[in-house]
Design a protein around this nucleic acid. Sequence first.
DNA 1: CTACATAATGCAATATTGTTGCATTTACAA
DNA 2: TTGTAAATGCAACAATATTGCATTATGTAG
Lengths: 141, 141
Amino acid sequence: MPEIQGAIRVLRAKGYKVTQPRKQVLKVLTQAQKPVSPYDVQKILQQRGEHLDHVTIYRILDLLCLLNLAHKVLLSGGFVKCALGDEEGCHRFMVCRQCGAFQEFADKSLCEEENELAWHLGFRTEQHFSEFFGLCAKCQG
Amino acid sequence: MPEIQGAIRVLRAKGYKVTQPRKQVLKVLTQAQKPVSPYDVQKILQQRGEHLDHVTIYRILDLLCLLNLAHKVLLSGGFVKCALGDEEGCHRFMVCRQCGAFQEFADKSLCEEENELAWHLGFRTEQHFSEFFGLCAKCQG
DNA sequence: CTACATAATGCAATATTGTTGCATTTACAA
DNA sequence: TTGTAAATGCAACAATATTGCATTATGTAG
Ligand SMILES: [Mn+2]
Ligand SMILES: [Mn+2]
Ligand SMILES: [Zn+2]
Ligand SMILES: [Zn+2]
């Protein structure tokens, strides 16, 4: 796991302790070849006879995201806010990380470009969702 | 609420019953000028002295999504799957609605186009997330 | 208008996701 | 080796989500 060693170096470099739970979670993330939920992490550890409190797992995953050693993915199943329907099959949100303001918009040419990209990978796209995080006009220094 | 009347027509046209709870939820979605969670819906109704079981609310929202009268938005805050970090600031997933297969990819030119679009709306983008739902190569009839 | 069939809702139970406060333990440096 | 701050564990709670089954309400057929 060279990936784990790299993560450990980052932890040390930024002054975070290299604890057993942190190493355990890093190992799970490295071995899982797909995104896993906090609950998944807990279950996988349980199968090895290891136990971590779910609060600890949340805190470790948050830290890894903070350090860009992991990242959240939106990947379906999740969801959940609902709005009455508008542009069918295309829903894009810009969200300000500072004030939380958001704005929805749609863009047809972007959809077409995405369709083509996906098509090159053998995928036929039906629905486009995106979120852009950044700073709104007001929150830009 | 002309929007509600339209939704009611769709329900009838497809053979679904127009029930009190469905009308109540439609009213909440119409009046809320932003996405609301199932829990939000329940709370808003409670403030009016109305009560719906949360299971009912989930089922109604699912139905409205099915009929394209509402749609789910990913809008942050939500949930969480984690993967070890890769392309910083750009995470795109294609997900097959049939078999659940998914594939992550990144595309720099897409990011730039999105940056520009957002910029026209006053937004400075830092992170790009997207999900494309459709059919993978295997699942295309 | 009434009665019926069944679609929809309510309720109970359970699982997953997520946060906070505080007691205890652990990592690491002095 | 020991001390201190950081990290974890634990308890409690809130929110999100799904299933099965009993009960109710809608739309229709009579
Ligand atoms: Mn939308
Ligand atoms: Mn990624
Ligand atoms: Zn802002
Ligand atoms: Zn597929």
